[in-house]
C-alpha cells in the first residue's frame, strides 16, 4: 500500500507532469484563467489520464506485446486516448453544459495533451504493473489538477494586479509558472518513485 502512496505522491509532487516534466503546458496556460474552469479541466484530465493509462497498459500487455507489434504503440495509444476523450466530452456535455462551454476547444484537445500520451508511454518504459500504472496515471493527473488549481488561483489574483503593460497577460503568467516550478524544486530528492 505504501508503495502506491509513494507513487501517488511522487508523480503528483516530485515529478509533477507540468512543473517538472513540462508536459501538458497547453491546457495549463490555456484554461487556468478561472478557478472553476481549471478545476473542471483538471478533473476531466484526471478522468482521461487515469483511464487512458490503464487502457493503454492493457493494450500493451494483452495485445501489443503478445503479438510483438510494439512499434504500433504510439499509434494505438493515441487511438485509445482519442476514444476516451470523445467519451469524456460526451459525458461533460451531458452533465455540465456550462463547463462544456467554458472548456471549449481545450476539451477535445486533451487528446493532444502530451501529458496523457506521455504518462501512458512512461508506464510502459518503466515497466509498471497494472496497479502501478493505475496509480502512476492517477498521481500524474492529480498533480496536474493540483497545479492547475493553484495556478488558476494565482492568475485570478494576477488579474487584479497592475502588472506593467510589458508583462501584462501571458508574460506574467509564464513568469509566475516559472516561479511556481522553482518552488516545486523543493520537493526534489524526496525518496519516491
Amino acid at each position: 500500500m505504501s508503495e502506491f502512496l509513494l507513487i501517488l505522491l511522487g508523480t503528483a509532487l516530485v515529478n509533477n507532469v507540468v512543473l517538472v516534466k513540462f508536459l501538458g503546458l497547453c491546457p495549463f496556460m490555456g484554461v487556468s484563467g478561472k478557478l472553476d474552469t481549471a478545476l473542471g479541466m483538471g478533473l476531466a484530465t484526471t478522468f482521461v489520464l487515469t483511464l487512458a493509462s490503464v487502457l493503454s497498459w492493457l493494450l500493451e500487455t494483452l495485445v501489443l506485446a503478445p503479438l510483438d507489434i510494439q512499434f504500433m504503440r504510439i499509434l494505438s495509444f493515441i487511438l485509445v486516448i482519442a476514444a476516451v476523450v470523445q467519451f469524456t466530452e460526451m459525458v461533460v456535455r451531458k452533465t455540465s453544459p456550462m463547463l462544456y462551454q467554458l472548456l471549449g476547444i481545450f476539451l477535445p484537445l486533451i487528446t493532444t495533451n502530451c501529458a496523457v500520451l506521455g504518462v501512458a508511454l512512461l508506464n510502459v518504459q518503466e515497466g509498471n504493473s497494472f496497479m502501478q500504472s493505475l496509480f502512476y496515471g492517477m498521481g500524474s493527473a492529480l498533480g496536474f489538477t493540483l497545479v492547475m488549481v493553484l495556478f488558476a488561483g494565482m492568475r485570478e489574483r494576477l488579474a487584479l494586479n497592475n502588472v506593467p503593460a510589458l508583462f501584462a497577460g501571458a508574460p506574467i503568467a509564464f513568469i509566475a509558472a516559472g516561479l511556481l516550478s522553482l518552488a516545486f524544486m523543493g520537493f526534489s530528492g524526496l525518496p519516491v518513485k
Partner: peptide, 18 residues
C-alpha cells in the same frame, strides 16, 4: 526526507502559491 537540508524557503514559496 528531501534533497535539501533546509526547506523553509521552498515551503514558504509553495504556500505562497496556495
Amino acid at each position: 526526507w528531501g534533497g535539501f537540508p533546509e526547506g523553509v524557503a521552498f515551503a514558504v514559496l509553495l504556500m505562497n502559491a496556495a
